[in-house]
Design a protein around this nucleic acid. Sequence first.
RNA 1: GGGCGGAUAGCUCAGUUGGAAGAGCGCUGCCCUUACAAGGCAGAGGUCACAGGUUCAAGCCCUGUUCCGCCUACCA
Length: 883
Amino acid sequence: MSSKELDKRYDPKEVEERWYKFWIEKGLFHADGQSPAPPYSIVIPPPNITGSLHMGHALDNTLQDILIRWRRMQGFNALWMPGTDHAGIATQNVVERKIMAEKSSREAYGRERFVKRVWDWRMESGREIIGQLKRLGSSCDWERERFTMDEGFYIAVKEAFVRLYEDGLIYRGNRLINWCPRCSTALSDLEVEHEEIQGRLYYIRYPLSSGMGSVTIATTRPETMLGDSAVAVNPEDERYGNLIGKSITLPIVRREIPIISDRYVDPEFGTGALKITPAHDPYDFEIGLRHNLPQIKVVDESGVMNEEAGGYAGKDRFDCRREILEDLKNGGYLQKIEDHRHSVGHCYRCRTVIEPIISLQWFIRMQPLAEPAIAAVEDGRIKLIPGGWAKTYFEWMRNIKDWCISRQIWWGHQIPAWHCNDCRGITVSRDIPETCVSCNSLHIYQDGDVLDTWFSSSLWPFAALGWPNETRELKIFYPTSSLVTGFDILFFWVARMIMMGLRFTGDVPFREVYLHALIRDQEGQKMSKSKGNVIDPIVLMERFGTDALRFSLASQASPGRDIKLSPERVEGMRNFTNKIWNAARFILMNLKGAEDEVRQDVPPSPRSLPDRWILSLLQNTIKVVTESLEDYRFDLASQALYQFVWHEFCDWHIEFIKDTLQKEDEEREDTISVLLYTFDSVLRLLHPFMPFITEEVRRSIPHEGESVMVSAFPKAKGALTDPEAEDQVSIIKDIILGIRNLRGEMNIPPSTILTTHFSVKDDALLSIEKGRGYIERLARTSIEKIGKDITRPEGSASCILKGIDIFIPLSGIIDPKEEIKRQEKGLLKIDEDLKLVLKRLADEDFRRKAPKEVVEKEETRKVDLLSKMEKIEASIRRFRELL
RNA sequence: GGGCGGAUAGCUCAGUUGGAAGAGCGCUGCCCUUACAAGGCAGAGGUCACAGGUUCAAGCCCUGUUCCGCCUACCA
């Protein structure tokens, strides 16, 4: 048990490093596989290995750490499962850029060497984020850290793939998919970000093959006309009824294509005639299938026009658009151009405009997986928090489409499927097969594609715990307790984990999902590197300390609203850490050798009013913090703590007891013991939010155990709740505030000790007697008389409280005019209130229909206000007489 | 087009069964009072977006409107 002098200010830097090291060395983050304690588990949303810690991570992981530390202190066997994600496309892009900077290319490397290069990169640079999570104080069980491409994970991925394939839920087929020409890979629908842009609608005249007349179509992508295989109109559209079945000859291409009818066509839009390009538009694709239209692919995988584009072959798709428009114009086919807002899909990794193309890919049939996942949320086995997200979840799940899971990149889980050179059959297998399952041929080769990164992520909660092996971890910690993540990956990740979890483990992957908001800058803009408005959490941690950042984030984490982060906010919380620090200094200074006599872990029996009072408030704080955390209301929990520590404990309690601490008696011992007990409770309550300073501060005052992180989280004790003490202190505070107010308004410096006379009703008398010392010291007054019928000294200023009149003889000190002004100000407010109360009481309906207590409350209020008013008026009259 | 969320003090936000409008920051004034000037004390500041409705009573419940944000979508 060591004490040491503390500096005047809290310096987080050295402290944070030291304590994190301590926790690791003692193995305090490690969850025991044998513990009989009830489990509480969270799997981390594995950050990308390419990433560095941004504000979103800081928020997400702060909240998780708060939950884990809190539950751990509550006695749960708490496991926070950490790991990182291989992030296929993003990582490949990063390494590819490096290689390109070396004047080489992925192709020049070849697949095997390239993948090795990525592994090398991951070993060196791909672990930065882990270091940063540690810096944040994350109490992850690092001994169990996983990676979505480690050996065990590959087994899990293969297992999942094979099972889904065998169950007929994975298939391979030629479908229209989203293609990123820059990343050279297919993307799922979710990976396409739609952005509304101001584009143009081009009206192009297609001449009828008969030579008589024409049909005008409207399109935003004129270059795709090279791949048109029909023009469609709505069967109900009278304008075109007689044209159905005829054909047109495409300008420039001179290809003859039919005019067909399909209900999909909206007669209201454009001209009511729609060009159909089955190979380059998702809905044209569907129509093409319905009408057996040829699929003419004109744009290739790099976004360049192919040989089908005739004279345009070899040109970039956007250059082609310009040229084709020019040619159409010259040929007299371009009828008009309109401005048109529409949304265009972009690659979520590189922002390139997506090209929809037909391609042979692997897909998962989602509907059979979605149904049980919908049920799990419907029947409450999984709770989404805030609850409103369930609606969004259901909406998406009920309209779910098949998931394209193959990617044409090299970094990732290669698809465990082998193609046969002889019979074209497919062999899907957990192990490397030697022969084709269909024809026993030896001429088989593995599919070159890798799986969507989100496929492996969807297995995270159980694969990270060892699935498909039946590990002890799975048994104990699965289903996990809480998942904490941003709402932006509800579909990407959360929904898919639910589907896969149910499919493969038969149980939900987690019981509660807390979806937090996004972090924005001070103007409410999304932070992005291109905007240059990113605030680096590391920089804030360095400036203000990790605890300040964490507390700041937690205090702003209210449901359903984005967090606008400003450094000023963090600075405010840094000040709060300093306040805590100085409270500790104060305690330390006042111990005077009492260290060994007190035990702060058992509730003391308080005798003095301030001691009873603070312990009572503490119980309420414990209750509020605990309940708020149970509801994921990190904001309310931190607010309660801030309020209690600063404005109750520091502002009042410490001030109340300063005198007592100067004494050398039993009262002082009791007070010290309450002080230590309260402060220790505060440190425990604060620890999940501010892990570093709580450890450091606790180290210097008497304490039990080597670390606050393994101490027990406080529980409210009903015996310490003391409404009487709360009432009495409340009266004492009002008196002090009243006198201070007068002093402030009248500009009387603190150095002037005011003489006061108290005229009091019976019920408040006791409080004042008990509080006399506190009042005199904190209001800097000397109470001359206290009694029931104290008369008002001539020329006294007054402070009228409920049942208490305070007279302050001030003749000569203050200007009567000023006092009149001050009193009139108060009177105005009372008058306003009184009017409202009287109005309400005059309402017969109110008297008849409102609950009795409410009416009574108004009645007493009326009496109080009236009496106050009379007294103030009298006081004003007396001062007038003096003028 | 559909859905969701938001609009409360200068700024950022709380306000949980409807019963006298709150916090932090900022601002103003006074204080270096022996834990803390990263501080203390006091103070100013609000038609709770708008319009209706329900109710004795609405920031809160209902309807509509206007702005802002997000998600989603088969009007090319």
